[in-house]
């Protein structure tokens, strides 16, 4: 697979430019809350606080399954 020269980490600088020029903070909050209200999230006991997830892992002896997603765009 050919990789583009402009790497992902460099693109993150460019995406920061796009983000600040795009939706308002209010719109971003709405998008985030919509994501967190989706059925797949509410169906399972997802932690959204990293510190609390680590505390639960320490208490229960379980490993943390960490899923990274985004809400600012589809």
């Amino acid at each position: 697979m050919t990789k583009t020269v402009l790497p992902a980490l460099a693109l993150s600088i460019l995406s920061a430019l796009t983000a600040t020029a795009g939706p308002s903070q209010e719109e971003l909050i709405k998008k985030r809350d919509k994501k967190l209200g989706e059925a797949w999230v509410t169906k399972q006991p997802w932690f959204t606080d990293y510190a609390k997830a680590k505390a639960e892992a320490a208490k229960s002896g379980k490993i943390i399954f960490t899923y990274f997603s985004r809400s600012y765009s589809p």
Binding site: K31, Q44, W46, Y50, E56, I63, I64, F65, Y67, R70
Partner: peptide, 14 residues
């Protein structure tokens, strides 16, 4: 899910 702690990190730009 019952075997792990589920942690969801959402990049929101908030």
């Amino acid at each position: 899910a019952s075997k792990v702690v589920l942690y969801l990190n959402v990049t929101s730009h908030v």
